[in-house]
């Protein structure tokens, strides 16, 4: 890996060794690394601060990223350290050896209901912690942001990040940038319409898309066409019931339908999801 001397100095000071590149994003890249003291593997996200919006810089670089270090949950990717140097942000975090849920589903297709139940319960637990303990919304729940550790436990990563990058404060709407395109399938009707929305309920919606995807091996709505997607989302609950595989239990379909409620007011909360019959 080509690495400049300042970056190398940061890594040396913190006792990390950089290994191969894991992924490339629009505003940075993720490397695999090793903590030299105990040979533990870590993921190192390197973000280019000059490519970030002013709002992102103000909100996260200074304060809120520090709060993420305090976040401790079995099903949330732990952040060990955050360093700002050489106009870059270095985020040292837990390494998950089995990749993302996207990779898993692309390889193996839909999950059995029992596996989906285990993973979904873990994710609900993580989100409940983020919503109630940290009083934050994740804002970018998607298969790419669910990682699998060496024991195949799911871990939620990247919260509070991507959405903020694409939020335009002056226009009060989301920017149609490349970063947002990949997240389209997980958008609730309010986001599709670029209307003000409750971020916690938007997280809940994305969890519904996730659960549907786990059980069906596909996305519920036609996200490539936003107006068609909105039609499908608001044809409720007829549409969502009609596209679910007929092998899926009534309890699972009931939970999916309660989550993918286009009306924010009546859409269930994470706490209510955790008490649903299917998760008992």
């Amino acid at each position: 890996i080509e690495i400049d001397s300042k970056t190398q100095a940061v890594l040396d000071r913190k006792n990390y060794r950089l290994l191969e590149k894991l992924s490339q994003g629009s505003f940075g890249e993720v490397y695999k690394g090793e903590f030299k003291i105990d040979h533990r593997l870590v993921a190192i996200k390197i973000l280019d601060i000059s490519k970030m919006s002013m709002k992102f810089k103000e909100r996260y670089v200074a304060r809120e990223l520090k709060a993420l270090i305090e976040c401790r949950h079995l099903n949330v990717v732990q952040i060990y350290d955050i360093i700002r140097s050489n106009n870059r942000l270095y985020i040292f975090m837990e390494y998950c050896s089995n990749g993302t849920l996207t990779m898993f589903i692309k390889k193996f297709g839909a999950c059995s209901e029992s596996l989906a139940r285990i993973w979904f319960r873990q994710l609900v637990d993580a989100l409940l912690y983020i919503h109630t303990e940290l009083k934050m919304a994740h804002r970018d729940i998607k298969f790419d942001n669910v990682l699998l550790d060496e024991k195949f436990n799911v871990k939620l990563t990247d919260f509070g990040f991507a959405k903020e990058l694409a939020w335009n404060d002056n226009k009060q709407q989301l920017e149609l940038t490349a970063t947002i395109c990949g997240t389209e399938p997980f958008m609730c009707p309010q986001l599709v319409q670029r209307r003000p929305y409750n971020p916690m309920k938007a997280d809940v919606w994305a969890m519904g898309v996730l659960l549907f995807g786990l059980l069906n091996g596909r996305f519920p709505f036609n996200w490539a066409d936003p107006s068609l997607m909105l039609k499908e989302q608001t044809n409720y609950p007829k549409f969502i019931r009609s596209v679910s595989k007929n092998t899926i239990s009534e309890e699972a379909n009931d939970l999916i339908a309660k989550i993918l409620d286009p009306d924010e007011q009546t859409r269930i909360t994470v706490l209510e999801i955790s008490k649903h019959l299917w998760l008992k």
């Binding site: 399938p185 596909r218 036609n222």
Partner: peptide, 12 residues
């Protein structure tokens, strides 16, 4: 069938 057709739509 319609179900098979649907199952091939919107891949992850």
């Amino acid at each position: 069938t319609l179900k098979t057709l649907i199952s091939k739509m919107n891949p992850i």
